[in-house]
């Protein structure tokens, strides 16, 4: 039951790290560049509009975070338990945010 990945420790070498470093720097440049361009908005319904800029910014940030987690933090080669911990973290994070927002979004007093 003890998930032991010590038997064959997967050591990621510097080459991977350098690639990831440049990917992250490129991502940073991209996200800054994207913020200076108006990417428009998606008028879903008359009351709900999704503008693309924050979506793109968050998407880039998330892919950067995923790279860091997978390679710098070695999660790609980690045990299932580590994955479970991460998934639990993301899940609770989203629970707090989304369930709180469920209140704010559906309040009928006009701030949204």
């Amino acid at each position: 039951m003890n998930e032991q990945n010590e038997g064959a420790p997967h050591i990621i070498g510097p080459r991977v790290y350098v690639v990831i470093l440049f990917a992250l720097l490129a991502g940073t440049a991209l996200t800054v560049a994207a913020s200076f361009v108006d990417l428009g908005a998606w008028h879903l319904t008359p009351t709900l509009t999704i503008s693309w800029n924050p979506v793109v910014a968050l998407a880039i940030a998330t892919s950067k975070a995923v790279l860091v987690v997978l390679y710098f933090m070695h999660v790609r080669y980690s045990s299932k338990l580590t994955w479970l911990a991460i998934v639990a973290g993301i899940f609770m994070f989203l629970t707090l945010i989304l369930m709180t927002l469920s209140d704010y979004v559906s309040r009928a007093w006009g701030n949204w």
């Binding site: 996200t31 968050l58 880039i60 975070a65």
Partner: peptide, 12 residues
């Protein structure tokens, strides 16, 4: 995330 959320809200 902080960088994307705080600095880059709307620059266009």
């Amino acid at each position: 995330y902080l960088f994307a959320l705080l600095y880059l809200i709307s620059r266009h």
